[in-house]
Design a protein around this nucleic acid. Structure first.
Lengths: 145, 145
DNA sequence: TACAATTCAATTGTACACAATTTAATTTAG
DNA sequence: CTAAATTAAATTGTGTACAATTGAATTGTA
């Protein structure tokens, strides 16, 4: 009766959607010790990697816009994890960078990836393959007109 | 300087998170014609497949709780896509089922999976493998104590 | 049978996500 | 040089997510 292609089990998007939320659910108790959410943890990660970024650059990296980032960065500023300031060269640009507290958090976070990995029943090879497939899936979107 | 495991590109969770949002972004203009969001489309799909479900059963299938489903189902009720009623046998249970409009939507939706597929640069085999990996990732969580 | 424990939805409060609009600053064209 | 076009964030409004709590119905058990 039901059209085959519309069955939940025949879709890729649904397990993608479900797996994402299940994984962030596993991060939650671990990140709680750091006092951040998963998206906030991503912000910390790009900043640990890049030093400082404009809101626009951060948005390009995380696929998020200012409507999401602005309020999130304000919350992180209140928690003293990041500083936000207007660029001197271009007053439109807001530059985000880590505070001392935000930098120190990297040491605490160091053990997080392996903790998450330990909770996953994929082999190392499967993990690599999954990452490759997901990144391939993202590719054409990155260069979208 | 940065700890290797904390780089965005070395993580599985980030492409998972980014890919999910990019995919739902592709669904948006297509689903707009149906007048539903992606999570609402998932609700329609489980109902097309199962006929009717309690909020609890639907939550188990979609990995969502009543805090998410109740307001969403109320919106879908306003749009005349579903009916909600208390079960006669157990007054705690709310049974959700499709209206005529909700059932008819399946015909319109029939062409959606292939439209989405056409926008993806994964091969059929890669698609199957991706689904397998994601489902394997979800497995241990389903049976979580 | 009573009544404590459990179960199911709903509610409350916080935090994303994102389309669309607004505001201010900068660039570009004329 | 200046008005129009563009750009970067912020804002507004809607819709998920989800932890935690609440309230009503049902179950289990003494």
């Amino acid at each position: 009766m039901t059209i085959e292609g519309l069955k939940l089990d025949n879709q890729v998007c649904f397990p993608l959607y479900a797996a994402t939320r299940e994984i962030t659910k596993r991060y939650r108790p671990i990140l709680k010790e750091l006092g951040v959410t998963y998206p906030q943890y991503l912000v910390l990660m790009v900043l640990w990697e890049s030093g400082q970024l404009s809101v626009k650059e951060m948005g390009a990296r995380l696929h998020l816009d200012s409507g999401t980032l602005t309020p999130m960065l304000k919350r992180m500023e209140q928690q003293k994890l990041v500083d936000r300031r207007r660029s001197g060269e271009d007053e439109r640009v807001v530059v985000v960078e880590l505070t001392a507290k935000g930098k120190e958090a990297e040491t605490v976070a160091e053990c997080i990836p392996e903790q998450i990995l330990a909770q996953t029943n994929l082999t190392e090879a499967e993990m690599v393959e999954l990452r490759r497939l997901l990144n391939k899936m993202l590719e054409p979107m990155d260069e979208t007109e």
